[in-house]
């Protein structure tokens, strides 16, 4: 991983951590058993986005082709 990306990732993680900390000081109005817990959105976002990438990459491995469609 090149340096600039590592830096950006660090910065983002720090921001995320700050947001999670802030979450402890805000009154949450969760609707389900878990979503009101502090920091839920942070880890759910990580998992969700990762799942999305995995799903897309898997789908791409199966069905992505390098050539354009013949009639496009």
């Amino acid at each position: 991983m090149e340096r600039s990306r590592r830096l950006a990732l660090m910065a983002l993680l720090v921001v995320l951590a700050l947001l999670v900390v802030a979450d402890f000081f805000v009154e949450d109005h969760g609707s389900f058993w878990i979503d009101g817990t502090p920091g839920f959105a942070a880890w759910f976002g990580l998992v969700g986005a990762a799942l999305a990438v995995v799903l897309a990459q898997g789908w791409g491995l199966l069905l992505r082709r390098t050539e354009e469609r013949a009639d496009d």
């Binding site: 995320l16 947001l19 999670v20 979450d23 805000v26 959105a41 969700g48 990438v53």
Partner: peptide
């Protein structure tokens, strides 16, 4: 709380992106 929720979600996605 709602804004914070959304920001966490977006920043988390950004982390994955990078």
């Amino acid at each position: 709380d709602h804004v914070l929720f959304q920001l966490q979600l977006l920043v988390a996605a950004s982390c994955i992106f990078v």
